[in-house]
Design a protein around this nucleic acid. Structure first.
Lengths: 335, 335
DNA sequence: CTGTTAGCGCTTTCAG
DNA sequence: CTGAAAGCGCTAACAG
């Protein structure tokens, strides 16, 4: 390990003081063009890279953002992180990634670590933050931006998809296809956005004067989304829906798989759609109609919000619109 | 922002010197149990969190690992990062995540940033590192561990799946099902591991004294893996295979979709399998037989290797075995 | 335009 | 067992 060269090494090599070097490197303060150039080439030759830790220490900021996810495996989270990393990189920020696994102890640990690292801001994606966790983060005193939070109105700053609008879009699509008996499979674990999507579902029906049948709305309790979808389909079948709008794509795919197992043709007998637009929607047969969440954009938006907060600007919460993506799993009502 | 309390604040509050506080906090050096306890409770009350930047500065290490991925979106990468983050967290390390996008300028930028941040080590996952990039990383002087590198024998430290063994496992499975005309769809973009898997394919055939038919081995050139799979199937069809072993799952899924389009029944007419065991294997119909890469384990192994290197231990490269996962897309040869 | 000085928060000798 | 002092690499007044 060739111990890294410091500003001092450069200074002696260039025959100037270390503060002149500092100024030259940063391009701040006045330094004669000549010495500046000399220092810069010297820096390159000697392989100088400013020590960000030292800089952080004196400047009181780290140029890092702590990103908390429940699990990196979630296909939704992945794309959001992509957007975050991208925007952060552009702005000269680095990203600490940490997953909470929805475990209280880990959540606390993550907060502690971020605190010790003095991250300039925290972005939390799509987790139903436990209250402990939330408090710890809040008292931490740095900007916190939540993406698709499942925690109602506790925090100031958030980026989310417009669940209601997205759901309306979905159900409107089904209505236009002539469906009237439209089922809905909800999600136990994301109560807040589920509630909003269900509201959108109802509003879309209402606009067309379709009276909602309670038996067409189910809330399966299952180990994970895929099995929730399977269970949801079973629960819905007795109500005889011609179309189903699932809370999200994984649930929809679960329903799709179960339908196949039961010999129900999608979309010929039942149209089916989800929400999110995860990659797998293209892998299933039939490919899945869905409402796209602008995942990467949401990540970028979160970073923008963070930067604005760091600058001291006023910011307001943003609700990004969902976008209908029609694929093969929905078709005209057969009745 | 309540400016963070420092060791000094604690010192004055406790009526001791700041070095005593330092010792107490770390539990290092001798401090009387009494004062130690006093300081610790005080620390809790006042919300003290050691400033890791300051610590890094004096200790000459940051307890951070820089992780480079080509893109976070890749389902393989995702799980590896999961394992990395997990193991790093356990060891008290934080993870900087950065994606290179396979763009030369970004690759250089990532290295530069990691260098400035003085990460203690770098883990690079599944990228065919450009040579520039590689050199820059190498001269950086910290341990670098590569996971599934597509760069032959340039680096000392690597973790990879045993491509050859995995491929043998796959082809052996097909052979046991009675298949003899086994096609193979390769990957343009991952030449190194593709070569190894192909070697495994050949060895498995050889062991059963099946002479390989060159027309059964194709290397489609396509924009991405999914379309490579589609194209691969088309290229393979004239050779009349009863089974196909694709380089990876996404390619296999591409082939699967194309087969459906062409009215070819999988697995009744053609058995099909992939490699990796990504999530989507469970979403497709039929579900996909594959060779599981222990992705999270590979991530963990990389961290273990990093820690060993940091400790100055000798390490040797590891090849983790693949594991056969039989699902629905393979069945007995119909002929 | 450049050097001197102080100090960010912490660890680490070295004395006591 | 505890304190004093130095210094990690850098920025930021403040003089010159």
């Amino acid at each position: 390990m060739p111990s890294p060269v410091s500003i001092k090494d450069l200074a002696t090599a260039a025959g100037v003081s270390h503060s002149t070097v500092s100024r030259a490197i940063r391009g701040a303060g006045r330094v004669s063009a000549a010495t500046r150039a000399r220092i810069l080439t010297l820096a390159r030759e000697m392989g100088y890279y400013p020590n960000e830790a030292a800089r952080s220490l004196v400047m009181g900021r780290t140029k890092t953002i702590g990103v908390v996810v429940t699990t990196i495996g979630d296909p939704f989270v992945t794309q959001v992180v992509n957007g975050i990393e991208d925007a952060a990189h552009e702005a000269g920020y680095s990203v600490f990634l940490s997953s909470s696994r929805n475990q209280a102890d880990r959540e606390m640990a993550v907060v502690r670590v971020f605190r010790q690292r003095r991250v300039d801001a925290v972005i939390v994606t799509s987790s139903r933050v436990g209250s402990l966790y939330g408090d710890a983060l809040a008292e931490f005193g740095v900007p916190i931006v939540l993406i698709n939070s499942q925690h109602e109105g506790r925090y100031l700053y958030s980026i989310a998809v417009d669940d209601t609008q997205g759901a309306e879009l979905a159900v409107e699509h089904l209505l236009q296809l002539g469906h009237r008996r439209i089922g809905h499979i909800g999600s136990e674990t994301r109560s807040v956005s589920c509630k909003r999507r269900k509201a959108g579902y109802r509003q879309a029906l209402a606009r067309r004067a379709v009276t909602p049948d309670p038996s067409l709305s189910v809330l399966p309790q299952a180990a994970n989304d895929l099995s929730a979808g399977r269970l949801g389909l079973e629960m819905l079948l007795p109500a005889n829906p011609s179309a189903i709008f699932a809370y999200n794509d994984v649930i929809a795919i679960g329903a799709l798989l179960e339908a196949r197992k039961q010999g129900i043709a999608i979309p010929d007998q039942v149209s089916l759609m989800g929400f999110d637009d995860i990659e797998a929607t293209e892998f299933v047969t039939p490919t899945l109609t869905t409402v796209r969440q602008p995942k990467a954009d949401m990540g970028r938006a979160a970073v923008e919000m963070v930067l604005a907060l760091l600058k001291g600007d006023e910011v307001s919460n943003r609700w990004l619109p969902g976008e209908l993506v029609v694929r093969e799993s929905t078709t005209a009502c057969p009745w």
